[in-house]
């Protein structure tokens, strides 16, 4: 009887929010509301872990395999518009994506599903190439490792350093 009730409750919850995973729900909630004046779309939520929401689960927005935001500097959150992100899969397949005016880029599983570990480089027109020396183990959201502030558990937001290696 209890079980039935639980299943019924879950069904109801699923219908209401199209999700029955409290951990996932609270991770999404923790990211807060949309910024005022920015509509849900390619330029929203710069710097956030896109795939926490865009994870392909039932009722989620468009599924991304890799997504994130590139900023110009370490010091502030000026977006890097038109930066090219190159993703190198463990099986040597590569994909490229170019950031929009919010600094955001995203790749769908149809376009590219990396085998991990994945390597990443970022090129910014007329500036530099920034290469991530370490690799990504399994997580397609840059911001899961690149959150602010930088500290023992985070590399800080992704930026294209002025003194990076010239391609």
């Amino acid at each position: 009887m209890r079980t039935l009730l639980f299943i019924a409750a879950c069904l109801a919850a699923t219908l209401a929010s199209l999700s029955c995973d409290p951990v996932h729900d609270s991770a999404v909630d923790a990211l807060g509301a949309e910024a005022p004046g920015v509509s849900k779309g390619p330029k929203h939520r710069p710097g956030q872990p896109c795939i926490t929401c865009h994870d392909g689960s039932l009722g989620s927005p468009q599924h991304f395999s890799v997504a994130g935001t590139i900023f110009l500097n370490q010091e502030d959150l000026t977006p890097a518009n038109g930066a090219t992100v190159t993703l190198i899969s463990a099986d040597n397949n590569t994909a490229q994506a170019v950031t929009n005016s919010a600094g955001n880029f995203y790749v769908t599983p149809q376009q590219f599903t990396p085998a991990y570990p994945m390597k990443v480089t970022v090129d910014y027109t007329g500036r530099v190439r920034a290469k991530m020396t370490s690799h990504v183990g399994r997580d397609g959201s840059c911001a899961d490792c690149h959150t602010d502030p930088a500290g023992p558990t985070s590399a800080g937001h992704v930026f294209v350093p002025v003194d990076g290696v010239t391609p």
Binding site: P117, T133, S134, G137, D144, G151, P152, T153, S154, A155
Partner: peptide, 28 residues
């Protein structure tokens, strides 16, 4: 560190196999 210790894998304090490293979790 290199193979297992990225921040999205064993470079996390919650892992039983918890790995620190210069390019992953830092011991603060």
């Amino acid at each position: 560190e290199r193979r297992c210790g990225s921040l999205d894998c064993h470079g996390q304090a919650s892992r039983n196999l918890r790995l620190y490293g210069n390019e992953g979790l830092r011991l603060a």
